[in-house]
Amino acid sequence: MLVVMSREADVSAFPEEPGAPVASPQDLLERVATGDQAAFSALYDQLAPRVFGLVKRLLRDHSQSEEVTQEIFLEIWQTATRFDANKGAAVSWILTMAHRRTVDRVRSSQSSRDRDVRIGIRDHNPDYDHVSETIEVRLEHERVEKAMSRLTELQRQAVSLAYYGGYSHSEVATMLSVPVGTVKTRLRDGMIRLRDELGVAS
């Protein structure tokens, strides 16, 4: 698929082009909360590739991914009134919601899915149909990969299976042949390690 990545997909860098100022997701989301449909349109342009990429990573199925992405953006429209910038960044709010909704879908359609356990573990391989890799995405990718490399094998596998595979902690326990209690602990330890490596702490 030869599609040129538009700058809208660049969510954290807002290039100041002459005559084309780009509003931040934060500003846009606040405008969406007032019923501004044009702001919703701009917000969609900026973040839809991020959301769709994440949803597709978890669900893999193209048409299901479209459905879920649509549901997520509809929910963004409906609940934008509840977004408060004091509580965190707009992008975080949206990606958190996107991940949760996608996992909900993964769980509800589990029986019909052919889930290869190893897909979750090999998850750092890029999708074949990804649009392109901007420098920004590649840097984030490398940063996360580097942070992930600091985890123990078990922590890394557990976190990957949970986040990129959408597996529950009990499923992860089965796959890795360790007790559920151990998985919970590894997920927490792993995420704390990642937090520190990525400098997320507030």
Binding site: R50, L95, A98, V131
Partner: peptide, 20 residues
């Protein structure tokens, strides 16, 4: 809150895909 933001960082490392 911090771990949720960390999870977002994992999400930001996924390649964007433009929807139809």
């Amino acid at each position: 809150t911090e771990l949720s933001d960390t999870a977002v960082a994992l999400g930001m490392a996924v390649d964007p895909v433009t929807p139809p």
